[in-house]
Computed example of a mutant assay.
Amino acid sequence: MRTKVKDIMTTQVVSVLADTPFKDIAETLIADAISAVPVLDGYDRVIGVVSEMDLLRKEEFRDQYYREGYRPPLRARLRHRDAKDKAAGDTAAELMTAPAITVTPETSVVQAARLMDEHDVKRLVVVDANGRLAGIVSRHDLLKVFARGDADIAREIRDEVLERSLWVETSRVRVDVAHGVVTLSGRIDRRSDARIAGRLTQRVNGVVDVVNEIAWDEDDTRA
């Protein structure tokens, strides 16, 4: 019921090696119209990521800190020390952000989305059990989950939620889906099961919202 990273990730990934020169990285980003590349060691293990911003720091610090007669305030120097070190880098290993934020192919898309939000990144590197590059998953890839058709969502709710997960009689429950919004209606024996049906439906990938209108015969939640 949960879509995993392996279901939506990009497997054809452009990467660079630790000793790849600055200019070659820049040309790779431009030629492939991408904004970042994973950095690999000699065993295809991911050791970091180089982004456009990592490369642009060289020009940024050339303008801000190397102008004749200019000396930035102490606080600014301390705050940007790491960025300044990167600005002096000439290879991927010197320019990259490390360690890379990674997920595995088995990671759920929900976990991946939370990681992106937590670290304020637009993509995550996907690695196998040995840390080797397996793919890339981006915010754009995550949006594919919500592009599922209404009929497909309704089918999964009926088969996975109502038939397999609840273990109660659900033949009187109706499922309607419009633009990802699910309306559950009809009737079920117990109020607790109606609540569970709503919660499980909310977890189905592609569901935007759930309107739970299921009526019940017995209110077993009062106790």
Rank of each mutant, 00 (worst) to 15 (best):
M1I: 04
R2D: 13
R2A: 13
T3G: 15
T3Q: 14
K6Q: 15
D7F: 03
D7G: 09
D7T: 01
M9K: 03
M9C: 07
T10K: 03
T11I: 09
V13N: 08
V14I: 12
S15G: 10
S15V: 09
S15P: 08
L17D: 15
D19S: 12
P21D: 00
P21R: 00
F22I: 05
K23R: 15
K23C: 15
K23Y: 15
I25H: 01
I25C: 06
E27Y: 12
A31K: 15
A31L: 14
A33R: 15
A36N: 12
P38F: 07
V39F: 02
Y43C: 13
D44H: 10
R45L: 05
R45T: 04
I47H: 08
G48R: 02
G48E: 01
V50H: 05
V50G: 03
S51W: 05
S51D: 04
M53V: 15
L56Q: 11
L56P: 08
L56D: 07
R57D: 05
R57C: 03
K58D: 00
F61P: 00
R62H: 14
D63W: 11
Q64G: 14
Y65N: 13
Y66G: 07
R67T: 10
R67P: 09
R67F: 10
G69R: 06
R71H: 11
R77L: 11
R77F: 10
R81W: 12
R81N: 15
R81Y: 14
A83S: 14
D85P: 11
K86Y: 01
G89N: 06
D90A: 14
T91D: 02
A92L: 03
A92Y: 04
E94C: 00
L95F: 02
P99I: 04
A100K: 00
I101V: 11
P105Q: 09
E106G: 13
E106L: 12
V109T: 10
V110G: 09
A112H: 07
A113K: 12
M116F: 06
E118S: 09
D120H: 14
V121E: 02
K122Y: 03
R123N: 09
R123D: 06
R123T: 08
D128V: 05
N130Q: 12
N130M: 08
G131D: 02
G131L: 00
L133Y: 10
A134Y: 10
G135L: 03
G135W: 00
S138Y: 01
R139M: 03
R139C: 02
R139T: 05
H140K: 11
L142Q: 01
L143T: 06
F146Y: 07
F146W: 02
A147D: 12
G149I: 06
A151Q: 08
I153R: 02
I153A: 01
A154F: 02
E156Q: 05
I157W: 03
I157N: 03
D159H: 14
R164F: 04
S165G: 07
L166F: 00
L166E: 00
S171N: 07
R172A: 15
V173Q: 06
A178C: 14
G180E: 04
T183R: 08
T183I: 02
L184Y: 04
G186F: 04
I188E: 04
R191W: 11
R191A: 11
R195C: 14
I196D: 15
G198Q: 05
L200Q: 05
T201F: 05
T201E: 07
T201L: 05
R203H: 09
R203L: 13
R203V: 08
R203E: 09
V210E: 08
N212R: 09
I214H: 01
I214V: 05
A215R: 13
E218N: 11
R222M: 09
R222C: 13
